Simulated scan of single mutants.
Amino acid sequence: MSLPPLATVAELQTRVGGTITGPDLNRAVAALEDVSSLVRLEAGTDWVAADGVTITAPRAIVTVVLAAAGRVYRNPDGYQGETVGAYSYQYAQTSTSAYLSTDEITIIRRAASPAASSGVFSLRTPSAYESPTPSEVDLA
């Protein structure tokens, strides 16, 4: 069974400004699915409830998915530059598929492991008043 995307097309529509229909709808769904897979891989969790449909991801994760999917949706050909006078353009020098930025990966890791980034730690130190065990005493 395929997991649902971590964000909806309706949420992506809000960010790109307009209704997504026809072939563009298919591209939007594919972008959301691709980015959701990358986020799940990075996080090590699927953020789906037991019903297999309800998304349980924190809002920060949804925001990351929408930002990355928006990049893929808005620029499917991977253009990096364009000049209007004496028209020219340039394709990306690297992959044009879905990707996560370094900042997005940091957000995903923090959201996936909130305890690790909370700064609350426990450390046990031995008491100075405990008697040493026989193996710790130098009998020589």
Rank of each mutant, 00 (worst) to 15 (best):
Y89M: 12
V120M: 12
G85A: 13
A57C: 03
R124C: 04
V39P: 00
W47S: 10
I55G: 02
V65D: 02
T21D: 11
F121H: 11
V39F: 01
Y89N: 13
T96F: 09
V9M: 00
G81T: 09
A49G: 01
L123C: 06
V65K: 01
Y87T: 10
A28R: 03
A10Y: 05
R27V: 05
P5T: 06
V16T: 14
I20E: 06
A69M: 07
L38A: 09
V35N: 00
L3R: 12
G70V: 08
E33Q: 14
A92F: 04
A30I: 04
I105F: 03
S131H: 07
V9I: 15
V62R: 15
A30N: 08
L6K: 09
S95K: 04
D46A: 10
D46S: 14
V29C: 02
S113Q: 11
A69C: 08
T133S: 14
I20F: 07
P4I: 09
L66G: 01
A112F: 01
A111F: 04
V137G: 02
A115Y: 09
D103Y: 06
L38H: 07
T45M: 10
I108M: 06
V137E: 12
E82F: 12
S113I: 02
G78P: 02
S37F: 00
S117G: 11
P58S: 10
S2G: 00
